[in-house]
């Protein structure tokens, strides 16, 4: 065996694989360049080259912030939090049944009900809350109510999707054990299913509430109430010092809500 010849070179992939890999990368680069060209066919590069100066200009106009604007932001801030909280609550009422209809192990019918539930989930998830707000402002008029419903519609899909995945992952043996005692359907839900998904449910809710705070700060841009409304007003009159104050307030709100949600999730799990 001592005269066996070993190769002096070694390659991770065969030459053909190597070639394919490079072709793949090349295709990606070509595709990127193509996209770039198409995207920028109408771009006016004079504006773009002007951007640093514009940035400096805006930056200089944004300071100093107009702090005396802050008190008048308290009511919109309250509205923003109300939109997020009530919207999340409203979403929960609709998301829970949808989740149970979408989970393979609890759906009444895989053939008919489940696809409908999945369609609700995907529609709700595909459309951003700002777009929902755009529609709802047109339908029920500008104001906090449109914001709440927009947040709710967007959150249904999110909550229902994560919840139905949690339902599908429950331990079937625990369910089996409770049904073996002669428990009814409702009791099986209460004793075997709900305890298993409750932590996930609470976690998802708080997580979504946090995201909703973030999103509800800008819903006012399309007229759905809250801080965004003041942002839109200030932008319209180019009141940059006010914009700065709003940005800072949004930032603080978002950070606080993130902290709260992390704390609560930690306490639950």
């Amino acid at each position: 065996m001592s005269d066996t010849q070993f190769d002096k070179s070694w390659q991770k992939r065969t030459t053909k694989q190597e070639l394919l890999l490079w072709l793949g990368w090349l295709a990606l680069v070509a595709f990127f360049v193509f996209c770039w060209e198409v995207m920028n066919k109408n771009t006016i590069w004079a504006f773009v080259s002007d951007a640093p100066r514009q940035a400096m200009d805006i930056g200089s106009r944004m300071v100093p912030p107009r702090w005396d604007y802050l008190p008048s932001l308290m009511e919109p801030l309250w509205d923003t939090i109300a939109i997020a909280t009530l919207g999340t609550l409203m979403a929960l009422f609709m998301a829970v049944p949808v989740a149970f209809m979408a989970a393979r192990n609890t759906t009444p019918s895989t053939r008919f009900v489940r696809p409908v539930a999945l369609l609700i989930i995907v529609s709700s998830r595909s459309i951003n809350s700002l777009i929902w707000a755009l529609l709802l402002v047109a339908i029920i008029g500008p104001g906090v109510m449109a914001g709440i419903v927009a947040i709710a519609f967007r959150s249904i899909g999110f909550v229902a999707k994560l919840l139905y995945e949690a339902i599908e992952e429950i331990d079937a043996v625990q369910v089996e054990a409770v049904s073996a005692t002669g428990a009814s359907k409702a009791q099986i839900m209460d004793y075997a299913v709900v305890p298993q998904i409750l932590p996930a449910f609470a976690g998802i809710t708080v997580f979504r509430w946090d995201i909703n705070i973030r999103e509800s700060t800008v819903l006012g841009l399309v007229g759905a109430g809250g801080l965004g409304l003041r942002l839109q007003e200030s932008l319209n009159v180019l009141a940059w010092p006010q914009v700065t104050v709003i940005f800072i307030l949004i930032l603080i709100t978002v950070l606080v809500s993130e902290w709260v949600s992390a704390k609560v999730r930690h306490a639950i799990i």
Binding site: L86, G141, V144
Partner: peptide
């Protein structure tokens, strides 16, 4: 309180 603070213009709705 927050439900109370939501003003809804039902005519508009």
């Amino acid at each position: 309180v927050s439900v109370g603070s939501v003003e809804v213009n039902w005519v508009r709705v």
